[in-house]
Design a binder for these strands. Structure first.
Length: 364
DNA sequence: TAGGCGTGGGC
DNA sequence: TGCCCAAGCCT
């Protein structure tokens, strides 16, 4: 959604300066992507942090940055390498778009990120909020993000009770967010303000049990004045989680003794380009056990392993692994590859499949 | 426009 | 167990 421009509501005054002062004194300053105005580093962190908690990203960001220290290194990398480093972080379209974005920055912008949010938002994987974050942090642009923190902080501050599942209401809140920005930002004000919104949402203005008694904007907060800050934000949920069972054909063989191929290997195939786990490698997936047997008739007998439950945003998966040694030298199917257990870290694999394979490691 | 798209954590 | 949420974007 685009960030709209104008709003004429009656708004509390002094919010932005209170927030900036609080951020400088009490906000977060030691995260690995802070302390740099390099748009590449900021961009990478913003993409990883989309719908993902800080503590999770801390385990990925340094490794990713070490392997791809700048936008050209990332643009030049094989897509499989990018997916391997993203493996386990989820929402894999982010990784595919990240790679495409790096290539566009190199091809269209000479390896230099554009400075304005409107231009940034034309790049793959960069929406209005991420574009605003990059522009505010790196270039001091007077533009508002709208993430989960801002939704919570501002709906409470303003006692904004419209249902944010309607995009028109979300758009209106974004206009209010824009109107709440520092009137005349100076120096690093936009960076401190933007960081302050997120820090306040993350550290004080929790979903449950907000710490209003030590909040720097409590005197301005209408939700607090009403005595019910947790009433906000109002979001009616709608996504259903369907239950599905998947059968995984876990084929293994003893690797040929040729160069570097020793050890037990597992057969992995690229996932379809659309849908769940697109861009990753996975064991063959079937809708039922009979389909596994029909697809791989060369296997005489399968060992059924303990089913594994795995939840996605919109699916409740029950994974049924079927384990068998692959007979002969022919490939099990037209597309795929044998991967040694020792090399699994270099391949992008869905989290539950990686976990399953780890439990089947030779000698383990 | 609404639904697809991962994973882990908190309650 | 189940639901909600986390620095959202894409189609």
């Amino acid at each position: 959604m685009d960030a709209p421009q104008v709003v004429d509501d009656d708004l509390p005054s002094g919010f932005s300066q209170r927030l900036i002062d609080w951020q400088r004194q009490h906000g977060r300053h030691g995260l690995p992507w802070q302390g740099s105005r390099d748009p590449y580093r900021v961009w990478l962190s913003e993409i990883m942090l989309q719908q993902t908690q800080v503590t999770t990203v801390l385990g990925y960001y340094p490794r990713f940055l070490a392997r791809f220290p700048d936008v050209r290194a990332l643009a030049d990398a094989p897509a499989d390498d990018v997916m391997a480093l993203w493996s386990g972080l989820g929402y894999y379209s982010r990784a595919r778009n990240l790679h495409r974005c790096a290539q566009e920055v190199v091809a269209r912008h000479g390896g230099v990120f554009p400075r304005h949010s409107t231009e940034l938002a034309t790049l793959p994987g960069i929406g209005a909020s991420t574009a605003a974050a990059i522009a505010a942090f790196c270039f001091g642009e007077r533009i508002s993000i709208l993430d989960g923190n801002v939704r919570r902080v501002l709906t409470r501050l303003l006692a904004f009770d419209a249902d944010l599942s309607a995009s028109a209401h979300q758009k209106r809140l974004w206009a209010l967010a824009q109107a709440m920005l520092p009137p005349v930002p100076a120096g690093d004000d936009m960076a401190a303000y933007t960081q302050g919104l997120m820090d306040l949402g993350a550290s004080l203005c929790h979903r449950t049990r907000p710490q209003c008694e030590i909040c720097p904007v409590q005197p301005l907060c209408r939700g607090h004045a009403q005595g019910q800050p947790t009433r906000y934000p109002v979001v009616t949920r709608k996504t259903l989680r369907r239950h599905e069972s998947w059968w995984l054909a876990v084929l293994w063989r003893q690797g040929p003794p040729a160069a570097g191929m020793e050890g037990r290997q597992v057969w992995l195939e690229p996932r379809p380009v659309r849908g769940i786990w697109a861009g990753l490698y996975c064991t063959q997936v079937h809708a039922d056990e009979a389909s596994v047997q029909a697809a791989l008739p060369a296997v005489r007998s399968w060992e059924a392993l303990e089913p594994v439950a795995h939840s996605l945003t919109h699916r409740e998966l029950r994974l049924h692994p079927l384990w068998a040694e692959w007979p002969g030298d022919a490939a099990p199917s037209g597309s795929g590859r044998w991967v040694a257990w020792a090399d699994l870290a270099s391949v992008g694999v869905p989290a539950p499949v990686r976990s399953l394979l780890a439990s089947l490691a030779p000698g383990g």
